[in-house]
């Protein structure tokens, strides 16, 4: 194990893979969060009855394996002749996947703000938007941020599945190296360590915020 054929350029290849993982994650989490906030507000405003179609569609994204979603989206984009590359397809699927979970987090955050607080702000003459912006958003963020961090990390880990579409991200990069060098354990350990190094500190931060910000403590 200490006698490895791994060279620095191979490590650079792995780093490129890690950069790809981070790029896919960043785009998907950013787009997914924006969509999730939008859908979350719509779900709260429209009520259970009128938002039922939206709820159903988002639920589908959470009940079908991500791998199947990726394959379906890829097949669909080629059927519809959209001409998307693997990167775009992956980002679109992962964004919707993120949005589906983020909607629930946003909804939970908004409904954690007591109705009396919101009524008070409206009675002070605030508009709906001002109420949302200055009262609901700060309070809901405190409740939602720890689970949002968990979601972002989940998407980072799930982004490993985009290798099925041929995108060379961290796991696929290490698989290519394994095929060439035939040292599966060593290379996979490096790959796992990179994932762990990205995920662990942020997970710890999330846990800390959850403890620090949890109500009634």
């Amino acid at each position: 194990m200490f006698n490895t054929a791994l060279t620095w350029s191979d490590l650079a290849f792995l780093a490129q893979g890690a950069a790809m993982t981070l790029a896919v994650t960043a785009v998907s989490v950013a787009a997914g969060t924006l969509l999730g906030i939008l859908f979350g507000v719509i779900r709260v405003q429209a009520g259970t009855y009128w938002s039922a179609p939206l709820t159903f569609v988002l639920d589908v994204f959470r009940s079908v394996p991500l791998l199947i979603q990726l394959v379906l989206a890829n097949a669909f984009q080629s059927i519809a002749k959209l001409g998307w590359g693997p990167f775009t397809t992956s980002c679109v699927v992962l964004s919707l996947y993120t949005a589906a979970y983020c909607t629930e987090i946003v909804r939970g955050g908004i409904s954690s703000v007591p109705a009396t607080t919101r009524r008070a702000s409206r009675s002070l003459g605030m508009t709906w938007w001002q109420d949302m912006r200055y009262i609901v958003a700060p309070l809901a963020t405190r409740v939602s941020l720890p689970s949002w961090i968990g979601l972002a990390l989940g998407v980072m880990k799930d982004s490993a599945l985009v290798l099925w579409l041929g995108l060379i991200e961290l796991l696929r990069a290490s698989q290519i190296l394994v095929t060439r060098l035939q040292e599966p354990l060593f290379i996979l350990l490096i790959c796992g360590a990179i994932y762990f190094l990205i995920s662990f500190p942020i997970a710890r931060l999330g846990g800390y915020l959850e403890k620090r910000w949890s109500p009634n403590d």
Partner: peptide, 14 residues
């Protein structure tokens, strides 16, 4: 803190 797919790879290849 690691992807499930990585854990399966570990079991299969590692």
């Amino acid at each position: 803190n690691t992807p499930a797919l990585f854990q399966i790879y570990m079991a299969h290849f590692g």
